[in-house]
Nucleic acid binder design. Structure first.
Lengths: 207, 207
DNA sequence: CCACACACTGATACTCGGTATCAGATTGAG
DNA sequence: CTCAATCTGATACCGAGTATCAGTGTGTGG
């Protein structure tokens, strides 16, 4: 609501605006400090007050930047979702929907390859913290909403016929495979590339 | 004083443990009252204090029966998970893993068919309340742990080789299909049977 | 250049879920 | 009957998230 409006604002306007730049700077600062505290003490043992104090911001203002404590860590997932949707739309039309989804997820596998250590510690925290898992799942549901229309198009589904659940089922299943692969990737400490695990996971759907 | 003790005596006899039966009774009473309040006012607009007061129980004691507010509504999912796992184990050995999972889920489709109205309002509440979705997802992860070993066996996977993610990927995907089907079932107000939607959802994995 | 409208900020107080502690009552076993 | 274990309510506490409000800057139009 205000955030999306703000985001739309930001992208619609050429000169960034001083105010918004300050906002972006503060936001980045919060993320950085919070990340450090989370890795030092764990997510649950870090309070929002502590983050706010360390950044030099009031608690109330911090909640104006991030709706929830979890969003400080998971905020970037919004952008990831859009990137995956773009990658999916860019896949050739004659590609199988499942394969197109698999390739679209390379947006993520590439990100993880670029900074494996960070990705590992990030995913580790994600998987051992219930409240983060919960919020992460919510974000993935919003990914689903972005991806389903394109999958429906590729399946030749009637857009008016909402009762055709194949697009949402396939998309949800693919995201479940992504989670499985991520879990396994953390479990093996990153020794097997995420891309390989994801291949195996999504391959298991057809066997 | 001795009269109440005598009365308790009267009803307590066969199953060892009067205490546990009292506990079960109270627990059932809480579930019933909470269910009513949730459907009347919505989940979020019903406080734990209100439930406790209505049952005639202290807030602290209520949390001794149910670890979280969500568990009052979702507690029965534990049993469902075990039932699905049993049903899966009972499927013929030569059945395809995916088909076996599909059939095991009939434990749920049959439950919903038995009381469609209740199931619909229950799922409706589940889907429109984020905190319930979150907890529900956690429960499904525990289902996954119950189902994966049997799927691994059917896939002929080496139990020692934890890096084989096919079992967990397939199981997670199947559960994702179950969620998709449930969502669609609610969306169409139950006009299409859940079993049919589930068939379509899981069928979309192989297409 | 100024004035006004608006957005942002910190402070404060509140709600609600969940935890910890403690003293008293109830129960079951020896 | 007694004693230990358990259950209970009361109370106080914690942390996330919300609401309100007055003060203070910022962007903009005159």
């Amino acid at each position: 609501m205000p955030e999306t409006a703000r985001a739309a604002d930001q992208s619609a306007r050429k000169p960034p605006g001083l105010r918004e730049r300050v906002r972006a700077t503060v936001q980045a600062e919060v993320v950085e400090v919070a990340h450090r505290l989370f890795t030092e003490q764990g997510f649950d043992r870090t309070t929002v007050d502590q983050i706010a104090a360390e950044v030099g911001l009031s608690r109330a203002s911090l909640f104006r930047y991030f709706g929830t404590k979890e969003d400080i860590l998971l905020g970037r997932l919004e952008k990831s979702g859009r990137q995956i949707a773009e990658a999916l739309a860019a896949r050739p039309d004659d590609e199988q929907p499942r394969e197109a989804l698999r390739r679209a997820f390379d947006v993520l596998t590439r990100m993880n390859e670029a900074a494996p250590e960070q990705a590992l510690s990030y995913l580790r925290m994600l998987q051992e913290t219930p409240s983060l898992r919960a919020r992460h799942h919510e974000k993935q549901l919003s990914w689903q909403e972005l991806l389903v229309p394109e999958i429906a198009r590729r399946l030749g589904a009637d857009p008016d016929q909402a009762e055709d659940i194949r697009p949402s089922a396939l998309t949800a299943a693919a995201l479940a495979c992504l989670d499985s692969a991520s879990t396994a990737w953390v479990a093996c400490e990153g020794t097997v590339p995420l891309a390989v695990l994801l291949d195996r996971a999504m391959g298991a759907l057809t066997e």
